[in-house]
Design a protein around this nucleic acid. Structure first.
Lengths: 354, 354
DNA sequence: CCGGACAATCCATACGTTTGGCCCATGCCA
DNA sequence: TGGCATGGGCCAAACGTATGGATTGTCCGG
């Protein structure tokens, strides 16, 4: 143990190159093709059980692993799927990615990730990179309602699943939270507390999430018999705090009374916090605020944010399942799935001042 | 346009299979090997410029893209690196992953991600999966000071870079924030405000980050002439809020006076908030708190958390650079890099009560 | 005792690139 | 003009796996 160098170089198991099919064949005294067939379950029936067993054993002993390049070259599958997200820093996406990762791994697939920053050119570039790498499937968390890349996707040869967002043209599979139900929970929660003048700070009508949440707000307000006042509806260009604050400022500037706000996203809600506070209105004392997504940090906000929770991890899992189905690797399932959303009540909502 | 089906099947550009080297060769009336050489810059000098130009042109016209499987099979490179993180949900990792992604992409590499949940068995499994996929490099954000997988990594044939954390055995490259400087910033900041009794709520001594921050706390307190009181030093098992709260409870229970706390992580700091509040002590009125990492959410906490910012995105970029160097794809650079940390003052720190 | 059915295994080719080596023409010098 | 170096291009052999079809062996019925 004193002479480190020689000890290392004379290691009894010198970390050899991975054994090849041919080497296993020689060791098991059988043809390479027999090994190939014995190794994979779907062709194993073509080889005599005892031979198969022997092959399996020697392959195992030698630590054989099929070379993914050779396999990919042969049957044109990469066992890899590509996922596009706007920005991993948005707390919405990591749990989705994680669920996807777990679901894919169970079927032997891996995931490569691309961040688009919501830039269409970059997005197109990444799709091309994925295509070059022959990904077996695509998961997009970046779609817009009017999606310029739609045609290219439709004529693409690989299955595509939209996640969280969808496009108006419903020819692509999708997995997301049930916004209709979610928005209903928010409106009812506030109504139950006694609120009547409920404002809506929407965002990004170009994204289905933004658009739908707005539509469902209208529908639920109507169905609960609450008055819809256009002056209590404003929109932020995008789902971030600054945009949310600007929109909330406008809402306040309009001068109409309101005792509660439904924000189309948690970031928007934070913007509302800021604007309301800037105008001396307390949350929830003067105004109740409900967010959307139920990010991991809602508990830490000031005050902790009541929010509609969307099952992010599950969305990822279901997306994996759906993809596997499309790839014929798993039993069939629905072509699109909506997952249940829930209300998480925290401290940003309270009954209106009497 | 009425007969959708026939229109689709008789499409003039029927999304053909990607052209192969052979097809380009035929089109350019030249041998396949010449095409291969003309296409890659490093061998292009072996073919006559005008031939090369012609080949380039036809390849471009046909939309040729090298088949990654065939290429990988030939030269055993996957142009893919594997990254292992404990949990993408931890806000520390997404920016690092993003920086890595960007840095790798510039060199034509992609990244596949694995989440370990800090489970060693899962981690070993993922490393094996990565090995099977013949990743060209490994990035680990999961290392512990005593790392059971170390030997396997050292004898592995691919370059490895540890990120954020390192191992005691310094034979692996590493990229992380400069904790020595960072902790110094925290201690000095509090000392400058007039604090003398500065407690330390550490975490995870098994991880280099936890261990180092503790050591540097001791060193800086000493060097600034501040008394080190062992009763003002507690440790949480891991970097999360609950563990941090328990540790802070213990600190309070010891009954010694302190006017400031340095937490080994932002989550720990949140635990301190909770424990302090539970005992009626306000932040920063009674106790100042400094966190570590400077996560994106510090501004939203209650109160906004003063924290040591570590340049997460840059860590990712530098990791990519270092990896490329090791792979001989870029000019040489240092074997390990420490990136500058900075102090972000927010509202959780103030002068002690007079 | 022979032909045929069937099971088990093997042979050979293809997947698409890269690359060492070979061949042929051209041009230069002696 | 013959020899030779050299540039430019071609041939063919890998890389490791999957698979249609040929080959061998065995058993059975006629």
């Amino acid at each position: 143990m004193t002479e480190q160098h020689s000890a290392a170089s004379e290691d009894s198991t010198p970390r050899r190159r991975r054994p090849t099919l041919r080497e296993v064949a020689k060791a098991a005294e059988v043809d390479i093709s027999t090994v190939s067939r014995a190794l994979r379950p779907e062709t194993r029936r073509r080889v005599k059980p005892e031979t198969a067993a022997r092959v399996l054993a020697t392959a195992d002993a030698l630590g054989y692993r099929a070379n993914p390049f050779a396999r990919g070259l042969k049957d044109q599958r990469s066992m890899t799927i590509g996922m596009l997200v706007p920005d991993l820093g948005n707390p919405l996406f990591p749990p989705i990615a994680r669920g996807l990762e777990d679901g894919l791994r169970e079927h032997g697939y891996a995931m490569i990730l691309g961040s688009t920053d919501q830039d269409l050119e970059r997005e197109a570039h990444l799709l091309e990179v994925f295509r070059e790498r022959r990904v077996d499937g695509l998961v997009l968390a970046t779609a817009l309602r009017e999606y310029p890349l739609l045609d290219r996707l439709l004529e693409s040869e690989v299955p595509v699943v939209l996640v969280n967002r969808t496009v108006d043209d419903r020819r692509l599979a999708m997995v997301s939270g049930d916004d209709q139900h979610g928005v209903g929970l928010a409106v009812r929660h506030l109504a139950d507390l006694g609120h009547r003048r409920i404002a809506f700070v929407g965002a990004a009508l170009s994204a289905s999430t933004g658009f739908n949440r707005y539509q469902y707000y209208l529908a639920w307000m109507r169905s609960l018999g609450l008055e819809i006042d256009d002056d209590l509806i404003v929109f932020a260009p995008w789902f971030n705090k600054d945009d949310g604050a600007v929109a909330a400022e406008e809402l306040i500037a309009r001068g109409k009374e309101f005792t509660a706000v439904i924000a189309a996203g948690d970031m928007i809600a934070l913007g509302c916090y800021r604007a309301l506070r800037a105008h001396g209105r307390s949350v929830p004392g003067d105004v109740s605020v409900v967010g959307y997504n139920g990010s991991r940090w809602c508990d830490e906000f000031n005050p902790p944010l009541t929010s509609i929770h969307v099952p992010k991890y599950d969305i990822g899992r279901q997306t994996a399942r759906l993809l596997m189905t499309m790839l014929g690797d798993a039993e069939a399932g629905p072509a699109s799935v909506l997952l249940p959303t829930t209300l998480q009540v925290r401290e940003s909502t309270a009954p209106p001042r009497p």
